[in-house]
Design a protein around this nucleic acid. Structure first.
Length: 221
DNA sequence: GACCAGGCACATC
DNA sequence: GATGTGCATGGT
């Protein structure tokens, strides 16, 4: 994946869609909660869950930490996987309170690699969730890889497919400036384009290979 | 009714 | 180390 090509795709996406204004959340804590709730889930469903938490006054670390897990699960029910996600939110809060007294600002001075490793050690926070929190919650320059990223760049033969998370991430880090603003917009644009054009099963009737680009992918790239 | 959505942990081979 | 499965709601 040549540097020119990678940036060229970014430019094309930006010209087509414009700025995406991510992350769609009003506070740092809301971004973190949203990052966990959106795991394998449509963002529209997450919005309902977050609205429930906000309307009930629980969208702060202190308030949410005091909420019994059963009640939390009911509030986030629209986001799907509500039992396991309630536990994951509690896992994050337990770490935050045990290690940082429940104060998110205490995480600001941490080095990116330190923050990422500590987040990954929390059960229920994997690489994409950790990186989303680092990039969108703390404006640290790390590229977020998601299913659309692997799908789009895989189908266009720009990354080896299949590849592991860190391997794909490294290919972007190798070609782009370590710029949180660029990474922010690029990932948001990939999701925006992927939702529209890059479904799991390419809709080309009779297409013999899963890896062939969807015809609409070709319009984009 | 089938398919999909901004993953992750865990079991099994 | 690769592959399969459970987790769950809501929109198309």
């Amino acid at each position: 994946m040549g540097r020119q090509t990678c940036l060229d795709i970014y430019d094309r996406l930006y010209q087509r869609y414009g700025p995406q204004h991510w992350w769609p959340g009003e506070s740092q804590f809301e971004i973190i909660v949203g990052a966990i709730l959106t795991q394998n889930t449509n963002w529209k469903n997450v919005e309902k869950a977050i609205a429930n938490l906000k309307n009930a006054g629980y969208l702060t670390p202190d308030k949410l930490n005091g909420l019994p897990i059963g009640e939390l699960a009911e509030l986030i029910r629209p986001a799907g996987y509500f039992n396991i996600k309630a536990q994951r939110l509690k896992n994050f809060l337990n770490w935050l309170f045990e290690k940082y007294d429940g104060v998110l600002e205490s995480l600001e001075p941490l080095a990116l690699s330190t923050l990422r490793e500590q987040l990954l050690a929390i059960k229920g926070i994997g690489p994409e969730t950790a990186d989303s929190i680092c990039l969108y919650g703390f404006e640290k320059p790390i590229f977020v890889v998601d299913t659309y990223t692997a799908r789009i760049f895989g189908r266009h033969g720009m990354i080896e497919s299949p590849s592991g998370y860190e391997q794909i991430q490294e290919s972007f880090h190798a070609e782009l400036q370590r710029d949180a603003v660029l990474f922010n917009e690029f990932h948001a644009l990939i999701v925006r384009a992927g939702k529209e054009y890059c479904k799991p099963k390419p809709a080309c009737d009779g297409c013999p290979l899963e890896t062939l680009p969807h015809k609409l992918d070709s319009e984009l790239f």
